[in-house]
Amino acid sequence: MKWTGKAILPHFGHLRPDNVVKKTCIEYETLRRAAGKSQGTVHTELGHLRSALKFACDTRMIETAPKIWRPAKPLTDKRILSAGEARALINGAIEPHIRIALILLLGTAGRVGAILDLTWDRVDFDRGTINLRLEDSQTRKCRAVVPMNPSTRAALDVAYRAALSEHVVEYAGGQIKSIRKGFQGAVTRSKIGHVRIHDLRHTAAVTMLASGVPLEKVSQVLGHSNTAITFSTYGRYLPEHMTDAVNVLDFMNLKAHR
């Protein structure tokens, strides 16, 4: 919120709440887009302004919170890898710590922060589980306890035998803060085109759903608080889930409507 305030306050800071109208919001969008900011950034910044004003109203700092106009939230350009592309990406990782990180990202659907935080005391080989949760975590985004699949278990077994620290993803006995450079190297060597780290989580989610894994289970693996979040994020990738519904609307099929 403080970071967003640096952009918001020069435009809105001198205004009374009742002076914040659609026109001022549109003017703000025009200025920010001219400064090279994306539509998504403007959407987020104005959302923070709305939250701040709502808080001010709830705490009776102001009488009413104005309605904040925002540009539409843009659709994300998620890249979903095929199984072959996922294997090529992993094989493109020449550094052991990048390879294990990629296997975990794809094999657990975890966020990169959770994977880099993972320590060996939360890897249970006996039960076959990986606990991505932190007891003292302050993040709003939930983390899950995920079962190991065979490939992930095999990779973890190799990594554990060579471990020099408590962290699963390590380099020279130290914790890794970022794998961005190594990840881009693997992408380049794999020749699969543009991919972002977070696309691996999207790939895992869509792959599970496309394989018929129930939405409730996919939601648990992703650490979502409810299935509505999972569906709103990934439902558009699976229009076939509505096939049985629209088949009922086949009024030209006499057998279906006897």
Rank of each mutant, 00 (worst) to 15 (best):
A83Y: 07
D77W: 04
C57S: 15
R201N: 03
F12G: 00
R236T: 10
G174D: 12
L81K: 05
A88F: 04
G193M: 07
L222M: 09
A52T: 10
G235C: 13
G107C: 03
E63M: 11
Y237H: 15
L75N: 15
R87N: 08
A86D: 01
I62N: 11
F12P: 00
L164P: 03
C142Q: 12
R127L: 15
E166L: 12
T59P: 03
I90C: 02
T44D: 13
L89H: 08
H224V: 07
L238Q: 05
A65F: 06
T119M: 02
W120Q: 06
R161D: 14
R127Q: 14
A172T: 11
L132R: 01
I103S: 08
C142G: 13
S219H: 05
D199G: 03
S178V: 02
D58F: 03
T30A: 14
R111E: 00
G92F: 09
T230Q: 12
V195H: 03
M252Q: 14
I80C: 00
M148I: 05
F125S: 09
R50W: 03
D124W: 08
T207Y: 01
I68M: 09
T233Q: 12
I229D: 13
A163S: 15
I115R: 02
I179C: 04
Q184V: 00
H202L: 02
L209V: 05
I176Y: 06
S151T: 12
R180L: 11
E63G: 13
P147G: 04
T119S: 05
V21P: 01
P74K: 10
G173V: 03
A52M: 14
K177Q: 12
L238D: 02
A228L: 14
K141T: 15
L49Y: 01
G173M: 07
V246A: 06
V21Q: 11
L132D: 01
I62Y: 09
E216F: 13
L46H: 10
K217V: 15
R99L: 03
E45P: 06
I103L: 13
L222K: 04
R180G: 06
F125K: 11
D121W: 00
M208F: 14
N19A: 10
E240P: 01
R127F: 10
P10K: 01
P66T: 06
V246L: 10
R201E: 02
R99V: 03
G84L: 02
R140W: 06
Q184K: 09
Y28L: 01
R236W: 10
P10Q: 00
K23R: 12
K54C: 05
A86P: 02
G92C: 08
W120L: 07
T64L: 13
A7S: 14
S38N: 07
K141D: 09
M61E: 14
L222I: 05
A86F: 04
G13N: 00
S178C: 04
R122N: 11
E95A: 15
V168K: 08
S38I: 11
A186D: 06
R180A: 11
V248H: 13
I68G: 09
I197R: 02
S219K: 04
S190G: 08
S38P: 12
A83I: 13
R153Q: 11
T44I: 13
N19V: 00
L31V: 14
R50L: 06
